[in-house]
Design a protein around this nucleic acid. Structure first.
Lengths: 199, 199
DNA sequence: GTCTATACGCCGATAGAC
DNA sequence: GTCTATCGGCGTATAGAC
């Protein structure tokens, strides 16, 4: 019994190592430049065979990563909507989340913002069909209806608001903006919010 | 003599076919999902061998594409700077160029805006070391100095301005914004310029 | 100068020994 | 359950026939 539990824990620890190594390599070098041997070594495993005890194929590693990241984002947005009343506050918290993510877990941020997932996961739903994304659009819709934001199409509002946010973060991730994301947050927020807010 | 000229023209015509086919496939499916057989067929060639008469390796096709697109962009920006006085007008013309490009040559636009070139061209200079990019930063610097734009770092100004422009175009290219780019241009310009302009 | 045949390496995946 | 050896396939690139 104890043995069983320990096995399960060890199992998931190895899984996490694999996922973490894959995330790092996929975002650094790209999916197709990453071999299972690369992953094996980055995860500190002895053989590639072990990977196949946890994932049926290389692609399934990417599928799992994708699901984890988007599920986690979706849950975070749920939390934010629950604990913030106004649409502006909800957006503010999402921006805060994304900037923190970029400083604390740049790999995750890179996966979200720079990777072209559909190149290696052709089956993956496009970003704008993801739960997280729909919730963001919904926040903007409410903001417009309640008069906090100017009356444009939510899609266009998204394009402008997250254009500024995402691009700022992308430029931090590529090193073109040379400070930590945190340094740019308030300016980016102001500019982005200004594109949405009712004057 | 005539024969020689004709050969040369035919040669470059085949080259262009290859480049055009590769551009289409690279931007549609990704570099690594595109085989030379795919390119051969999209270009209407009989054998893959012909490709090797024009390019030493598959990678060199991508190098050539990259150079063509960035050189052409750099030249266009030179023209724009020559024919427009004010920084705001220069930026306006660049935006006009990018929106027209997205409607008329979406493949080129995709290559510029969505492809992660460094994944298949590790030697390629990062975007922000390209001539075209430096010229854009320079335009913003002049705009700040001459008082047209608010006094922020040109890099941050770039992040905000082209965040809106590029993201709008990306969303048009992915079909999330369902009209032609042209439809969104004036709104995107207003929002982007508003992020830069002195109030 | 065009094409066929093939070499070569790499990598994902598996079978089977221990 | 862990690892080794290897298979099979694909895709780039080339050698050589015509």
């Amino acid at each position: 019994m104890d043995q069983e539990i320990e096995d399960i824990q060890t199992q998931s620890e190895v899984q996490d190592k694999i996922l973490l190594a894959a995330l790092k390599l996929f975002t650094e070098k790209g999916y197709f430049n990453t071999s299972l041997i690369d992953i094996k070594e980055a995860a500190g495993l002895k053989t590639t065979g072990i990977i196949y005890q946890h994932f049926k194929t290389k692609q399934m590693i990417a599928v799992q990563l994708h699901a984890n990241i988007f599920d986690s984002l979706s849950i975070s947005i749920d939390d934010i909507r629950r604990t913030n009343e106004k649409s502006s506050e909800q957006l503010r918290s999402i921006v805060d989340l994304l900037f923190k993510l970029t400083d604390d877990a740049p790999d995750v941020s890179r996966f979200l913002l720079v990777l072209n997932v559909n190149e290696f996961l052709p089956e993956a739903k496009p970003l704008h069909e993801s739960a997280a994304f729909k919730k963001i659009i919904s926040i903007i819709e409410v903001g417009i209806k309640e008069g906090e934001m100017r009356n444009i199409s939510p899609q266009l509002g998204y394009a402008e608001f997250f254009g500024i946010i995402d691009n700022t973060l992308r430029l931090v991730l590529t090193g073109f903006l040379d400070r930590k994301a945190d340094f740019y947050q308030s300016q980016a927020w102001l500019a982005a919010w200004n594109a949405l807010a009712k004057k």
